[in-house]
Design a protein around this nucleic acid. Structure first.
Length: 392
RNA sequence: GGAGGGGUACCAAAGUGGCCAAAUGGGGCGGACUGUAAAUCCGUUGCGUAAUGCUUCGUAGGUUCGAAUCCUACCCCCUCCA
C-alpha cells in the first residue's frame, strides 16, 4: 500500500524498520515535506505527494509541513529560472496562509504541524554555515544532475545555489525527520538529508520519491510557472475542463497517481484504455468527476459535468457566461470585442474576426467592418470557449 | 587585475547601412478534422477603421537623405586566464 504509486524509496529496508519500530513502540514517525512559498496555489502535481503522506498520517504518523520561507529566498536551483525574485515577508506570509489552507484539504489537519525554516535557518551564524558546508565537497555537489550539466556546459553555477540542498538537509536534522517526501527531482536533496543527519549522529531519514506529474501539455512537469497546471482551488468547470484536455496517454498515470480507486479497479481501467474498450474521454470524465468531487464537492462536480456536456458535447452555451455591463446601442464590432474584454487590442479583435472566430448570438461574423447592436442579453463569442453576455 | 563574447519581439535565435515591423523554430491565438485529446493541415502573432501611418532591436546621445545594423558614453550578462 505504501509503495503504490511511488517512484523510489531509499532505502526500503530502513522504511520497514522504522515502521515496525513505530508499531512496536507506539511512537509515530516524523514525516517531512518542504514547500516553496513562492506561489500561493497548490495543484494536482503537489497532491501526488500530499496524498502519500496522508496515507501515512492515517496510520497515525505526524507530518511537519515546512514553509520554506528561508530557502525560498534562494530557490531550488533548476538552472532555468536563475534569477528568482525575492519575496517580501508579507508575500511569503500571505502565500503561506492560502497554501496551508489548501494543503489541509489533503493532509490530516490534526497530524500536520506547520513550521517555517527561517525559524532555525536565519539564526545560524556564518561559522555555523561554514561548519555545515565543510561536510560536503564540490565533487559531491556536482553529482547533482543539473549542476553537472551546467558545469559541463560552462553555464554559471552560483555558490549560494550549493546552499540550497544543504539547508533543506539541515531542516531534517533540526526536525529529526524519519521520512522525507518529494518528487523524483528532489532525490539529491533528500539524500543530502541522510548525509547530514548521519553527520549529526542521527538516524538517517528515508527518502520517499513520487513520480513527477506531467501537466496539461503532457510533456513538462506540472507547474504554476509553466501554466500547465490544474489548481485544486479552481472553479469546478475550470477543473473539469482541464482534466478533459489532458493528453490521452497520460490517463493511466493520472489514475494511478491521483485517483483513489482500488488497485483492481485501477488495473481494470488501465487495461480498458489499452485495449480500447474504455474510451479515453470516458476515463477522463470519470477522473474529472472524482477530482472535482474530492476538492470542491459532489454538487460542484455534478454541475460541472452537466455544463461540460452541454457546451462541448452538444455545442451549446455554458450555463453561466461571464456578464459585462454595457451601454446598449450599435457600435463597431471590433470595438465591442475590446470593450468586452474578448480582445486586448483592436488589431487582435480584427484578426479574430477575419479568421472566423467571432460569433454574435451564435452567428458567425466575418466582416471586419461589421456593426453590432449590443443589447441586454447579446452574447459574443471568440473562439470555442470565450463567451460574454451583455447586460444593459 | 587581464582578454574575449553578448544584450533583437512571449521565449529561443537570424539579421551587421535602405529590399526589416525584422528570417526560422517553439509557444500563443483563430480555423479545419475530432472527443475542448494527441497528431496533422491552414492562417495569424507590435499598434492602428489600415495609411508611401505610428512606436519597436539593453540605455542615452551622435554620424547619415536613411540605422537593429556605423561612432561615443553608460548599464547589464556570460566565458576564459590570473
Amino acid at each position: 500500500m505504501i509503495q503504490r504509486g511511488t517512484a523510489e524509496i531509499v532505502p526500503i529496508e530502513d522504511l520497514v524498520h522504522k515502521l515496525r519500530r513505530s508499531v512496536a513502540t507506539g511512537q509515530p514517525l516524523r514525516l517531512k515535506l518542504g514547500m516553496d512559498p513562492s506561489s500561493p496555489d497548490i495543484h494536482l502535481g503537489h497532491t501526488v505527494v500530499l496524498q502519500k503522506i496522508r496515507q501515512l498520517q492515517d496510520l497515525g504518523h505526524i507530518c511537519h509541513l515546512i514553509i520554506g520561507d528561508f530557502t525560498g529566498r534562494i530557490g531550488d536551483p533548476t538552472g532555468k529560472s536563475e534569477t528568482r525574485r525575492q519575496l517580501t515577508a508579507e508575500e511569503v506570509h500571505e502565500n503561506a496562509r492560502t497554501y496551508v489552507q489548501q494543503v489541509l484539504k489533503v493532509l490530516h489537519p490534526d497530524r500536520t504541524e506547520i513550521v517555517r525554516n527561517a525559524d532555525w535557518l536565519a539564526p545560524l551564524t556564518f561559522s555555523d554555515v561554514v561548519r555545515l558546508a565543510s561536510v560536503l565537497t564540490v565533487a559531491r555537489m556536482l553529482e547533482r544532475e543539473d549542476f553537472q550539466k551546467r558545469f559541463q556546459e560552462n553555464r554559471p553555477i552560483h555558490i549560494h545555489e550549493f546552499f540550497y540542498p544543504l539547508m533543506q538537509a539541515y531542516d531534517s536534522v533540526h526536525l529529526h525527520t524519519d521520512i522525507e517526501f518529494g518528487g523524483t527531482d528532489q532525490k539529491f536533496n533528500l539524500l543530502m538529508g541522510r548525509t547530514l543527519q548521519k553527520e549529526f549522529g542521527q538516524e538517517p531519514q528515508v527518502a520517499v520519491m513520487m513520480p513527477i506529474l506531467e501537466g496539461l501539455d503532457g510533456v513538462q512537469k506540472m507547474s504554476k510557472s509553466l501554466g500547465n497546471y490544474i489548481g485544486i482551488d479552481e472553479p469546478p468547470k475550470e477543473m473539469w475542463g482541464k482534466v478533459m484536455s489532458i493528453p490521452d496517454d497520460l490517463m493511466p498515470k493520472y489514475f494511478e497517481l491521483l485517483s483513489g480507486v482500488s488497485v483492481e479497479e485501477l488495473r481494470h481501467i488501465q487495461a480498458g484504455l489499452r485495449d480500447g474498450s474504455l474510451h479515453p474521454r470516458d476515463a477522463k470524465m470519470r477522473l474529472a468527476k472524482e477530482l472535482v468531487t474530492r476538492f470542491l464537492g459532489a454538487e460542484a462536480a455534478a454541475e460541472a459535468e452537466t455544463n461540460w456536456k452541454a457546451v462541448f458535447q452538444q455545442g451549446g452555451l455554458p450555463q453561466d457566461i461571464p456578464e459585462v455591463r454595457i451601454q446598449p446601442g450599435p457600435r463597431w464590432l471590433v470595438k465591442a470585442l475590446v470593450e468586452l474584454g474578448l480582445a486586448t487590442s483592436n488589431s487582435e479583435a480584427r484578426r479574430a474576426i477575419e479568421q472566423g472566430g467571432v460569433r454574435v448570438n451564435g452567428e458567425r461574423v466575418a466582416d471586419v467592418n461589421a456593426e453590432v447592436d449590443l443589447r441586454d442579453g447579446t452574447v459574443l463569442q471568440v473562439g470555442k470557449r470565450r463567451f460574454v453576455r451583455c447586460r444593459a
